[in-house]
């Protein structure tokens, strides 16, 4: 009994995510010491920056889009498709939501729902463009999604500057959206909106679908061994396209949620600049094919990021340091995966 317990403990302690986070923190501490920052000041500042002094609201506000983008990456990944085009899908979703909200006055509830639906659709369409490129032309999704992303971001940027742009200000942003289209806020600051319960519910739905539905089973089989799934009668190409579109839908929805939240307009660059896409990819890789770990990993990286800004304010440590931590985590996870694959092959 105790032997089993020790083995379990060992397996958890030595698992890739734990080693990665631990190793990254150790290395960061080392860097702090080398550059002359006192870790005993920096780390508390980081924690305070993330959760204390009213900062928790910002952290949650960043958690929502990051978790959404994590789903955008994780869903296709289960089917073996890498969706690296999150930025393009995000921007497309944001533009679609803004355009719809600005174009026609809508009745109260619909004024929120329809733009969000349009955003989801737009993101899904942009992602689905990659599917035929991979099934027909053999360009892997990891490349095609990335290729499509840049023009999608540019197109969104063009639309926001010109056809949808706020007249006369010269700023690259849309006019403010009508009040009916504002996402209901859950906190006083207004930063935590209905987007939080929505994304949390969608995450729950995804987890359920992944583990306990026919669709989830077929997606996983497609990801693990495509030929096996095909042999079993699964329409793998359609499913892969569906997975990509679904991922893009999540990304588009996130775009919509950002635009319908404060400052209630599409500000060019505001969607992609915070780097939600990259953080989300890192979190999913850190979760290492354990779907239930995805929200946890997202929370961890969001805390690090928001906390990093606090650390910069308080302890004078550049917030880039937290980006180093994040980068180190990814490197360690990748090294782990490679070593393990190598060992299995040897």
């Amino acid at each position: 009994m105790t032997a089993v317990a020790t083995r379990t403990v060992r397996r958890v302690v030595l698992s890739a995510p734990v080693v990665a986070v631990g190793g990254a923190l150790a290395l960061t501490t080392l860097v702090m010491l080398v550059v002359g920052v006192d870790p005993s000041l920096a780390y508390p500042a980081l924690v305070r920056g993330a959760i204390a002094d009213g900062n928790l609201e910002y952290t949650i506000a960043a958690f929502v889009p990051t978790l959404g983008m994590a789903l955008a990456f994780a869903l296709p990944l289960r089917a073996g498709e890498f969706n690296l085009g999150g930025d393009g899908q995000l921007a497309a979703g944001g533009v679609a939501a803004a355009a719809l909200a600005l174009s026609a006055p809508l009745p109260p509830v619909l004024a929120v729902l329809l733009p969000l639906a349009a955003a989801t659709l737009a993101g899904g369409l942009v992602a689905a463009l990659a599917a035929p490129l991979s099934t027909r032309l053999g360009i892997p999704a990891i490349v095609s999604t990335l290729l499509i992303s840049a023009p999608a971001v540019s197109l969104a940027s063009y639309l926001v500057r010109f056809p949808l742009g706020e007249q006369g200000t010269g700023l690259a942003q849309t006019p403010p959206l009508p009040a009916a289209a504002h996402l209901p806020a859950l906190t006083e600051g207004g930063y935590v909106t209905l987007g939080l319960p929505l994304i949390v519910a969608l995450t729950g739905l995804w987890l359920y679908a992944d583990g306990r539905t026919v669709l989830g089973y077929e997606l996983r089989a497609t990801g693990r061994n495509r030929e096996f799934a095909r042999y079993g009668g699964v329409r793998v190409n359609r499913l892969a396209a569906f997975a990509l579109a679904g991922g893009g839908g999540f990304a588009g929805l996130v775009g919509g949620l950002i635009v319908l939240g404060p400052p209630y307009r599409f500000v060019d660059g505001a969607l992609t600049a915070p780097g939600y896409t990259f953080t989300a990819v890192a979190a999913v890789l850190l979760a290492a094919a354990r779907p239930f770990a995805v929200p946890v990993a997202v929370a961890l990286l969001t805390l690090l990021q928001v906390g990093g800004q606090g650390m910069e304010r308080e302890a004078g440590v550049p917030s880039q340091l937290t980006q180093i931590v994040q980068g180190l985590i990814i490197v360690i996870v990748a090294v782990f995966a490679t070593v393990r694959a190598r060992r299995r092959r040897a």
């Binding site: 996983r220 089989a221 042999y231 079993g232």
Partner: peptide
């Protein structure tokens, strides 16, 4: 390994296919 099974899925899930 290539077609009849997905080696890293569980036995139960391999037995399920179809």
């Amino acid at each position: 390994h290539g077609r009849a099974t997905a080696p890293d899925m569980s036995l139960a899930e391999n037995l399920l296919m179809g």
